[in-house]
Amino acid sequence: MASYCQGVGKTFDAMTEAERNTVRQAATVQLQSETLQAAIVKGEHVDTEQLVRLSNLSVRLLTKLGLVKAGNDDETADLASYLASRGAAA
C-alpha cells in the first residue's frame, strides 16, 4: 500500500477515506492477481476469467488513483492516422 500512497503523493493518513478505500482495494486486487499468476507459473489450473477481471479492476482502481493514465494518447492510435503517417492509402 505504501507504493500506491507514494504514487498518489500522500501519506495514507493524509488521504480521504475514499482514497484510502481505493488504495486498500487496489492492494487487495494486486495480491489476488499475483496469487493467480504464481499458480500459473507452478502449472496449476486457474480461472483465467477471474484473472482478467482482476486485471481490469486493477487498471480501473489505479486510474481512479491517478496512477494510470486513462485513454490512449498515442498519435497513431487509429488505423487511418497510422496509415497516413506511413504514407499508405487508408
Rank of each mutant, 00 (worst) to 15 (best):
S3I: 09
C5E: 02
G7N: 03
V8W: 02
V8H: 02
V8E: 05
G9P: 02
K10S: 01
T11C: 02
T11E: 06
D13Q: 09
D13W: 13
D13H: 14
A14R: 10
M15H: 03
M15D: 02
T16W: 11
E17R: 15
E17G: 02
E17M: 11
E17N: 13
N21W: 12
V23D: 01
R24F: 15
R24M: 09
Q25E: 11
Q25V: 02
Q25I: 00
Q25P: 06
A26H: 01
A26S: 10
T28N: 13
T28A: 11
Q30D: 15
L31S: 14
S33Y: 10
S33W: 08
E34P: 07
E34M: 15
L36E: 01
Q37V: 12
Q37N: 03
A38P: 00
A39F: 05
A39D: 02
I40A: 09
V41R: 15
K42I: 13
K42C: 08
G43A: 06
E44V: 15
E44P: 07
D47I: 04
D47Y: 14
T48G: 09
Q50E: 10
Q50K: 12
Q50F: 05
L51N: 07
L51F: 04
R53Q: 09
R53I: 14
R53S: 10
L54Y: 03
S55Q: 09
N56G: 13
S58Y: 14
V59W: 11
V59L: 06
V59S: 10
R60I: 04
R60Q: 12
L61E: 00
T63F: 08
K64Y: 11
K64T: 01
K64F: 06
L65M: 06
L65V: 04
L65E: 03
G66T: 01
G66E: 00
L67M: 02
V68A: 09
K69L: 12
K69R: 15
K69G: 01
A70N: 12
G71M: 05
G71A: 04
N72P: 01
N72T: 05
D73H: 01
D73V: 01
D74C: 14
E75C: 13
E75G: 03
T76S: 12
T76W: 15
T76M: 15
A77T: 08
A77W: 15
D78I: 13
L79E: 09
S81W: 02
Y82I: 08
Y82R: 12
Y82M: 06
Y82C: 05
Y82K: 10
L83N: 09
R86A: 14
G87K: 00
G87Q: 04
A88K: 12
A88Q: 05
A88W: 15
A89S: 15
A89F: 11
A90P: 13
